[in-house]
């Protein structure tokens, strides 16, 4: 079953045609990596899935984008609920200047939870799922800003998980992290895919090949090739993909 389905998706910022006729499916409990040169539209695609682009006045979208078969851009779609179901982790960890506990509880509270026992339980579960519980369990009331970059990123993942999403979008989640923190996030991605569907943007080919089941190569707003990751990095079908991943590009 496909969590995300894009069919003939086109997006625009004003007159600029950004994504061009993208058709792409992401199966449940898999990791899809998006690769491609800067400006090719990876983030735009990611942000279309949870309607983050709606915040930009000039943004326009044509074609079909479905979550579990339901039109993400239909009038009936509850955008607040959509963003709970489709969580997002950014390049730079962005914890709130609050305690570690409140960072994770925050999402639950804005979605209307006020049962403190439930919140405490979810916070613990989420921190455990994000593989950071052991590091923070004795200082839940301390500021999240005191954590290292890698810890902050896992905290942000915990914050996303707390809302029980179906999909987690990650836009270069490790680009600001050292190799050890990066490996922790990558291990975490392997764990998380048991329960979630993940779409990750990365400029690191090795990372894409380590964490993802499928990889999609974007170029100038077009989807050039989407394949099983091991196939794409060993014997890509398209010459453009081959040129990009082997550095014979530009």
């Amino acid at each position: 079953m496909y969590r995300i389905t894009a069919e003939h998706l086109n997006t625009y910022f004003g007159d600029a045609h950004i994504l061009k006729d993208i058709s792409l499916k992401v199966a449940e409990n898999t990791v899809m990596a998006l690769i491609g040169p800067s400006g090719c539209g990876k983030s735009t695609f990611l942000r279309s899935i949870n309607r983050m682009n709606d915040l930009i006045a000039s943004f326009k979208l044509e074609g079909t984008l479905l979550l579990d078969g339901n039109d993400i851009y239909s009038k009936n779609m509850d955008v607040v609920d959509l963003r709970r179901r489709v969580g997002m982790v950014f390049q730079k960890p962005n914890p709130f200047p609050k305690s570690i506990f409140e960072n994770v509880a925050y999402g639950l509270r804005i979605h209307g939870n006020d049962d403190e026992d439930y919140i405490a339980q979810r916070v613990e579960e989420s921190l455990k799922s994000a593989a950071i519980w052991d590091e923070v369990k004795d200082k839940l009331d301390q500021s999240a800003l005191g954590l290292s970059g890698g810890q902050q990123q896992r905290l942000c993942i915990a914050r996303t998980i707390a809302n029980n999403p179906e999909v987690i979008l990650m836009d270069e989640p490790c680009s600001a992290l050292d190799p050890i923190s990066t490996l922790k996030i990558e291990d975490l991605i392997h764990e998380l895919k048991k329960d979630y569907t993940i779409v990750i943007v990365t400029h690191n080919m090795q990372q894409a090949s380590r964490v993802s089941d499928f990889t999609s190569f974007f170029l100038n707003g077009e989807l050039i090739e989407s394949e099983k990751t091991e196939k794409l990095f060993v014997s890509p079908k398209e010459k453009k993909t081959e040129e990009y991943i082997t550095g014979r590009f530009g």
Binding site: M205, Q206, F233, V234, S235, P236, E242, I245, T246
Partner: peptide, 9 residues
């Protein structure tokens, strides 16, 4: 250099 695709092969 972490070669890929035809370079790796």
């Amino acid at each position: 250099e972490q070669p890929l695709a035809k370079d790796l092969l």
